[in-house]
Amino acid sequence: MANMVSFDRLSEEEKHARFMERIAAGEKIEADDWMPEEYRVALIKLISMHGISEIMGALPEKEWVPKAPTLRRKLGIMAKVQDEMGHGQLLLRVAEDLMKPYGKNREDIMQDLFSGDLKFHNVFHMPAPTWGDAGLIGWLVDGAAIITQTNMLHASYGPYARALQRICAEEVFHAQHGEAIIMALTEGTQEQRAMVQDAFNRWWESLLMFFGPAQASTTGSSKQDVTIKYNIRTKTNEELRQDFFSKYIPRALSIGLQLPDSTMHFDEESKMWVYQQPDWNKFKQIIKNNGPKSKERLRLRQLSYHNNEWVREALSPMNKVV
């Protein structure tokens, strides 16, 4: 390849071969570089879903921002939810640059969200009815997110890897913010302890679903093969779920929580956690925006989008008067 005269004159096959060479060598692909259509499409799907999930993920926690029980907790959860929005910003910027060749931008992402074409993560369709949920989301949902995101820190796509670098650094604060709320509750009154166990039970199935089904056949589609082929991530859904169990089950038990799945145990021979599968049909329904809070949260986003339409129209450089 070193004697190449012009990249543009290469055949598609040669471009593809060079692309695979670059990612095999650990080079990072940048936004304006040539990339296989399959790679671009997989990245757009993965990153726009990741980004919009951060934005939608701010909503269940946002519920608890004004209600947080002390001044310190009010500040902490505000900063945490702000970060979620911030992560959404970083990720959507990465997705938007990938969509540019199709003439799409953030406006289209929002429209895709409202039409149901762009899905958001299963956990953010669920209710968060108590302060215990606010803590549990911070601790375990963010914990699960850390597991999947750190798995992609070395992704072949440079802008995504760089966004994840920023995100994971902030997730460390999120995890500790969640742990702090949970520990204050488990070390507190009986009512406070019950609040945590209750939230744990409520979130258990969603946490299992978080990593997606082990095989594509379970739900009919999965991005995991393509993303592994192109060095976007390295571990399978099940490997990530097992990592999550290994890190968090012992911690949950140590602070006196009971596992919602009484059959769950670690199998010494296979070195795997054995657990009861969640209802994957329910999962399919949830991510199709048929979860308990899907409609309500979409409505919130839609309303804010429409209420502020005049601002975007007024400031559009196409209405140049300023």
């Binding site: 934005i55 921002v65 001044l71 500040l75 505000m78 702000q82 929005m85 804010s304 209420n307 502020n308």
Partner: peptide, 25 residues
């Protein structure tokens, strides 16, 4: 803090939240 997530665009949500945090501080 009630505005969080409802501002005209995401970048502003982040900026506005910092101001609310400072003020609560």
């Amino acid at each position: 803090s009630e505005w969080l997530g409802l501002a005209p665009h995401i970048e502003e949500d982040v900026a506005f939240s910092s101001i609310s945090q400072d003020t609560m501080g």
